[in-house]
Amino acid sequence: MIEAHGISVTIGSRPVLHGETVRCTPGKMTALVGPSGCGKTTLLHCLGLLLPIDRGSMSINGKNVTGYNTAERRRFWRDYAAFVLQDYGIMDEESVAFNVTLQASLFGRRVTGDLERMRQALAKTGLKGRENELAGRLSGGEKQRLALARAIYKDASILFVDEPTASLDPANRRKVIDLFADFAKQGRTVIISTHDAEMIDACDRKHRVGLDNSATDMPKSDQTNQGGS
């Protein structure tokens, strides 16, 4: 559970967020929506503790995290969070397998970690059998799925996603949306900054950045096999 209460952020001399209040619950996908420049990505980064806030408060599972220092934020990223950002966070010059486990033997001669769990994560994201390929050879949609495979391997409880379908064709868009939905159904919290109508329709809740003060449930007609809040 991630909750932000009245948070505001100024970058340089420009106010970006103005008293945003949002509640993101486990087992659901929350969409951060609004026009370009409204602060969707900034709010996502604040919720993921990537960006400090100027005013307001934040809590995770009821614990106040507003004043977390660098070490505390790093522990949160290490133990609970995974990120799928617009640049995918993929290392093109490394193998698919390494991009999932982020572990290698001395001098990087072979990938280490739980290799069976790595293969299972790739299978779940449609990348079975491609662990030895260079990640740079993957398409944009495949890199999105590889970033999600990393989150599955990590067993992250909170997933932060920024514009995941911006450059995807319709087939890959549907695959990525379904993967995020499945991730949420396992009891994880999924928070997505997006302007994609199909992605928004797949989410359980939406928060209009800059226009309202809470995340609201999507109409039941827009939900797929999801319960209400």
Rank of each mutant, 00 (worst) to 15 (best):
A149M: 04
T112L: 09
M58Q: 03
A31L: 06
L179M: 15
V65P: 02
R188F: 08
Q226S: 15
N172L: 08
E198C: 05
C38P: 08
N213C: 11
R174D: 15
D196S: 05
A149I: 04
G67A: 14
V9E: 01
Q103F: 05
C38D: 07
M199H: 13
T189V: 11
A31R: 03
I191H: 04
R188E: 01
A149E: 01
I11V: 12
P15I: 02
R78T: 14
T125W: 02
T70Y: 07
I191M: 07
G89F: 10
C24T: 13
F160R: 05
Q223Y: 04
K185S: 07
Y68I: 08
R150I: 10
T21N: 06
L168C: 03
E93V: 08
D204I: 05
Q223A: 09
N225L: 14
A135R: 00
I60A: 14
D169R: 06
R174A: 15
A149G: 03
K124R: 15
R208Q: 13
P170W: 08
I200L: 03
V209D: 04
D196R: 05
H5V: 10
E94M: 09
Q226F: 14
G12F: 12
G27W: 06
P52Y: 13
K206H: 10
E94K: 03
E93G: 03
E3H: 12
T42I: 15
I60Q: 07
G19A: 14
Q86H: 11
T25P: 04
F98H: 01
